[in-house]
Computed example of a mutant assay.
Amino acid sequence: MSATSIHITALDGIVNVNSLFTFAVFIGLAWNPADPNNNLIDPTQPPDCSPSPKTAERLVCFHVYSFSCFLFSSLVALGLKQAIRLARDSPAHWPIDLALVNKTGLRVGYAFSAAGSVCGSVFLMLALVNVVQIKLGMLGCGGSRHGFAAVVPLVILVPSGLLIYVCTVLYAFTR
């Protein structure tokens, strides 16, 4: 497998994953957090445990930030992919190689694309924490056991996956 096809496959992977996350963001934005019929909060909880309008605002903001980051990451990845294809299809008809692509520029592009994906994932995680608070009650209240049960795996697994992703990207920079 040539270096060019490896890079194009990696960029396709970034775009595909970002597309899935972007779809999740759209589903999250389409959901109406103010819908009284879509609420799982125990009515016997104290009023302080009910989510405030600020929680719904943060939910929407984090979804928009997440969407922006995933879109940025995908656009950078698509731009890099196009640059590789243009260099590959140059009139010189050289063998498929990255010889014509500025490797420093490629690495910087990968870094920006990876940073966009990481930031988008963090914002999506924060949006999901707000969804849990809206659906199950504020996490600061003692009665939100189910909320903690939903959030704890989220805040452990997502950062762990992001750490593995960042380490892999950094390792790729050294090769």
Rank of each mutant, 00 (worst) to 15 (best):
M1A: 11
S2K: 04
I6Y: 14
H7Y: 09
T9Q: 09
V15T: 10
S19H: 08
S19K: 07
F21C: 03
F21L: 12
F26Y: 07
I27L: 14
L29T: 06
A30P: 03
A30F: 11
W31Q: 12
N32H: 11
D35F: 09
N38C: 06
I41N: 11
Q45L: 15
P47M: 04
C49S: 06
S50Y: 00
P51Y: 05
S52W: 01
T55S: 03
E57Q: 12
V60C: 03
V60T: 10
H63N: 11
Y65A: 11
L71P: 00
F72P: 03
S73V: 05
S73R: 07
S73W: 04
A77C: 14
A77R: 03
G79I: 05
K81T: 14
K81P: 05
Q82A: 10
Q82D: 11
R85S: 09
R85Y: 04
D89R: 05
D89F: 08
P91M: 04
P91D: 15
H93E: 14
W94Q: 09
D97N: 02
D97W: 02
L98R: 06
A99K: 10
V101H: 05
N102L: 09
N102T: 10
K103H: 15
K103Y: 13
R107A: 12
R107N: 15
G109W: 01
Y110Q: 15
A111P: 02
A114Y: 05
A115F: 05
G116L: 01
S117C: 08
V118T: 09
V122T: 08
V122E: 01
A127M: 02
N130V: 01
L136V: 08
G137F: 01
L139W: 06
G140F: 13
C141W: 00
G143R: 02
S144Y: 01
A150E: 13
V155I: 15
I156S: 12
V158H: 06
P159F: 06
G161M: 15
G161L: 14
L162M: 12
V166C: 12
C167M: 07
C167S: 05
C167I: 11
C167L: 12
T168Y: 08
T168I: 12
V169H: 04
V169Q: 12
R175E: 12
